[in-house]
Design a protein around this nucleic acid. Structure first.
Length: 602
RNA sequence: GCCUCGGUGGCGCAGUGGCUAGCGCAGCCGACUUGUAAUCGGCAGGUCGGGAGUUCGAAUCUCCCCCGAGGCUCCA
C-alpha cells in the first residue's frame, strides 16, 4: 500500500509548487545571509501591507511571513486583486522603499493591542494566540503600523530588490472551513543581481518543464477526455518501457519475481483491506451486475491475495513480488500536475513477505539497489528521511518501537544521514522516504520503503515455521523509481529533456548534405540499425543546417553528417548535440562508440 | 473542492461591437543541391471551448457550463 507518492491530501496540502520547490543549492548562502534575507522579506511584506492598506482602505491585514525565496501577505478584501493592481502595488512599494523609513518596534500592553486591532478578527485571533508571558510588539515604518513579532531590517531602503509574482486565494490558517483570503506572493533580495539570478532560475525551470518538453519531444500528451492521464507516443513509450526494463533487469539480480494481477475488483476486497473506508473518495468505482466494483488504486491487496493462493513455508521466504500494474486514483482536479501527479500511473511496486529477522537485510538490499540505480540517472545526491508513527495509527506501541528501531539501525549501519520526521509515517508502519535534488536545486521525493505489520494481520497471512507452527509474515512495501510517470517527469526536468544515449528514443540522425548522398545515408542507417542503433535518416528536402537544427531541437545525441568527402571515404562526420564536432570517422567507430555508451548507461 | 487568470487553424500568438478573423512555426506541393542550429515561392488549414442571452450586427458585452494553468504548509 504505497501511499507516499500519490498520497491523499487535504486540499490545503498539495504537492510543492514551482516556487516552493526551487531552493538554492548551487551556492549555499551563509547563515547570516539566510537570516538577512528572511528579515528583508518580512520587511518587504510590511511594505506590501502598507501599500495595500493605502490603496484599499477596507482591506484587513492578517499574516505576512517570509518564505523560502520570498514572502507573501494574506489580506481579507472584498474583491480579489487583479494583475493590474499588482503592478500598481509594486510601483507604490518601490516609492515607499525609496523613502527609506526606519522600522521601529514598540512594546504594547495586551489591552492596548486589543484596542488597536479591535476591528480585525484575524489580528484579534492572533493576539489571543500569543502566550501570556510573551510581550506584544508592534512594528512601524512611516505611518504604517502592524502587530508583529519583529525581525526586520533597519529601514525600508535596505530592500534593494522586490518583485510581486502572483496572487491567489488562500484559506485563513490554511483550513478550507475558514474564510478565503487573497494572498499576494512576492520576492525580495539583497541586491538586484541576486533577484535577477532568481528570476533566471524560474525561467530555467520553465524551460525544463516536462509538460512542455513532453509534447515537443513527441513523448506524450494529455486530453480532457481522460483528464490527468498521459497518452504515450511511440518515443515516450520507448522511454517508459526502457525504465521498466531497467528495473526488471535489476530485479533479476536482486531476486525478485513478477506477478500480474487484475485491475478491477469487487468492493468486498476493498472492504477487507480497509481502502473502502479510508480511500473510497480516491477510487474509481462502477456498478456491474448490480454489484459494486473498484479500479485498484494500489497493488497491495492483490499481493495479499496472491500470497494466500497457496500455503507458504518459511523456506519460501523472503518472497519478493513485483507488480507493474497500471493504477487509477481520483485526484482533485486542482492537484494534478503533468506526469508528476496523475490519475493513471504505474509504480515499480513490489511487496516483500518475510520473517521479522529478514526485514533488515531486505531493506538494506533495497536501499543498495536504489542508490546504485539513482546514480545511473544522474541523481548522485540522495537524502533520506525516516517517517515515524503518526497520531492516527494501528498496531501496538511495541510493534512500532520494533519497526522504527529496525529502520533506524539500518540507516546507521549504512552510514546514512537522515532526518526524522515525526508523525509522517504511514498508518500501518514507519517508512524511509528518499529525496533527490535535481539539476536546478529542486528536491523531489521518489522512492520509499515501508514496513507493514498490519495488512498481513487483516488478511490473516501465515507461513509454516521450522517448528511446524503458523507464523505471521511481515510485509515491506517498496518502490524505487516511485511511479514511472512521476519519475519520468522529474528526470526529464533534471536532464532538460536530453536523454542519455542508452535510453534516447533516437540515438542518431543521419544528415545528407545534398540528395545525391541519400542512398549512401540510407546504407549507413541500415548498417547501424542492424547493429542495434536507434537511427533515422533525414532525407527531407531541407538544407543541412535545418536538418541539424531539427535534430538539435529533438535533443538527438548523435548527428552523422555525410557529404562527398564522407561518402568517398565510407565514413560519417560526427556532431554531438553539445555542438562538438568529432570529425570524420568510420561507421564501425560510431557503432562501437555508441555500443560502449549504451553498455555503461551513458 | 475553493480563489485568480486563461481557452482564437496541429503548436505559439495578434485581434475589446462593423468589410471574406490575421501572423509565425509545423503540414502539403514545387524550385534550389547547399559543409555543422531555420533556402525561396506557392497551397491548404479556423463551428474563435460549449450553450443561452443582449444587439440591425458578437471572437469581442452578459449569464451558465466544460476544460486548462497558477495558487490554497511555512502562522504577530
Amino acid at each position: 500500500m504505497l501511499r507516499s507518492f500519490h498520497r491523499s491530501r487535504r486540499p490545503t496540502h498539495h504537492v510543492g509548487t514551482l516556487l516552493q520547490r526551487i531552493t538554492m543549492t548551487n551556492q549555499k548562502p551563509s547563515a547570516e545571509l539566510v537570516e538577512h534575507r528572511s528579515k528583508l522579506r518580512h520587511s518587504a511584506a510590511h511594505v506590501l501591507a502598507e501599500v495595500v492598506l493605502d490603496m484599499f482602505p477596507e482591506a484587513q491585514l492578517t499574516i505576512g511571513p517570509p518564505t523560502q525565496d520570498g514572502f507573501y501577505y494574506d489580506f481579507a478584501v472584498g474583491t480579489p486583486f487583479t494583475p493590474e493592481d499588482l503592478k500598481k502595488i509594486e510601483r507604490q512599494m518601490r516609492k515607499s522603499i525609496g523613502r527609506n523609513h526606519p522600522f521601529i518596534e514598540r512594546e504594547v500592553s495586551r489591552a492596548e493591542a486589543a484596542e488597536i486591532v479591535k476591528d480585525n478578527r484575524f489580528k484579534l485571533e492572533i493576539l489571543e494566540g500569543i502566550p501570556e508571558g510573551e510581550t506584544v510588539t508592534f512594528c512601524s515604518h512611516g505611518d504604517f503600523e502592524d502587530l508583529c513579532r519583529g525581525g526586520h531590517v533597519e529601514s525600508t531602503g535596505q530592500i534593494k530588490a522586490v518583485k510581486l509574482l502572483t496572487t491567489s486565494g488562500a484559506y485563513w490558517r490554511g483550513d478550507e472551513k475558514n474564510p478565503m483570503l487573497q494572498r499576494i506572493y512576492g520576492t525580495a533580495w539583497e541586491s538586484k543581481e541576486a533577484q535577477q539570478e532568481y528570476i533566471d532560475r524560474l525561467a530555467e525551470a520553465d524551460r525544463r518543464d516536462h509538460r512542455k518538453l513532453g509534447p515537443q519531444l513527441g513523448l506524450f500528451f494529455f486530453d480532457p477526455l481522460s483528464p490527468a492521464s498521459p497518452f504515450y507516443l511511440p518515443k515516450g513509450t520507448h522511454i517508459f518501457n526502457s525504465l521498466v526494463n531497467f528495473v526488471k533487469d535489476l530485479y533479476a539480480t536482486y531476486g525478485y519475481q513478477e506477478v500480474m494481477t487484475p485491475l478491477i475488483y469487487n468492493t468486498e476486497l476493498w472492504k477487507m483491506s480497509g481502502h473502502y473506508e479510508a480511500y473510497h473518495e480516491h477510487m474509481f468505482t462502477m456498478e456491474v451486475d448490480e454489484r459494486e466494483f473498484g479500479v485498484k488504486p494500489m497493488n497491495c491487496p492483490p499481493a495479499m491475495m496472491v500470497y494466500k493462493s497457496d500455503l507458504r513455508s518459511y523456506r519460501d521466504l523472503p518472497i519478493r513480488w513485483a507488480d507493474f500494474s497500471r493504477l487509477h486514483r481520483y485526484e482533485l482536479s486542482g492537484a494534478t500536475h503533468g506526469l508528476i501527479r496523475t490519475r493513471a500511473f504505474t509504480q515499480d511496486d513490489a511487496h516483500i513477505f518475510c520473517t521479522r529477522e529478514q526485514i533488515g537485510s531486505e531493506v538494506k538490499g533495497f536501499i543498495d539497489m536504489l542508490v546504485k540505480a539513482y546514480k545511473i540517472f544522474g541523481f548522485d545526491e540522495v537524502r533520506f528521511a525516516l517517517s515515524l508513527r503518526p497520531e492516527k495509527r494501528i498496531g501496538s506501541d511495541e510493534l512500532w518501537d520494533e519497526a522504527e528501531e529496525t529502520l533506524e539501525n539500518l540507516l546507521s549501519e549504512f552510514g546514512i544521514e537522515y532526518v526524522r520526521m515525526s508523525g509522517e509515517g504511514a498508518f500501518y508502519g514507519p517508512k524511509i522516504d528518499v529525496f533527490v535534488p535535481d539539476a536546478i536545486g529542486r528536491e523531489w521525493q521518489l522512492g520509499t520503503v515501508q514496513l507493514d505489520f498490519n495488512q498481513p494481520d487483516r488478511f490473516g497471512l501465515e507461513y509454516v515455521a521450522e517448528d511446524g507452527s503458523r507464523q505471521r509474515p511481515a510485509m515491506i512495501h517498496r518502490a524505487m523509481l516511485g511511479s514511472i510517470e512521476r519519475f519520468m517527469g522529474v528526470w526529464i526536468e533534471h536532464i532538460a529533456g536530453a536523454f542519455p544515449v542508452w535510453i534516447a528514443p533516437v540515438q542518431a540522425v543521419v544528415v545528407p548534405i545534398t540528395d545525391r548522398h541519400n542512398d549512401y545515408c540510407h546504407d549507413v542507417g541500415k548498417i547501424l540499425g542492424r547493429a542495434g542503433v536507434r537511427i533515422e535518416v533525414d532525407d527531407s528536402s531541407d538544407r543541412m543546417n535545418a536538418k541539424i537544427r531539427k535534430a538539435q531541437l529533438q535533443k538527438v545525441p548523435y548527428m552523422l553528417v555525410v557529404g562527398d568527402r564522407e561518402q568517398e571515404a565510407g565514413e560519417v562526420s560526427v556532431r554531438l548535440r553539445s555542438g562538438d564536432d568529432l570529425g570524420s570517422m568510420p561507421i564501425a567507430s560510431v557503432e562501437s562508440r555508441i555500443a560502449e555508451e549504451v553498455a555503461n548507461f551513458k
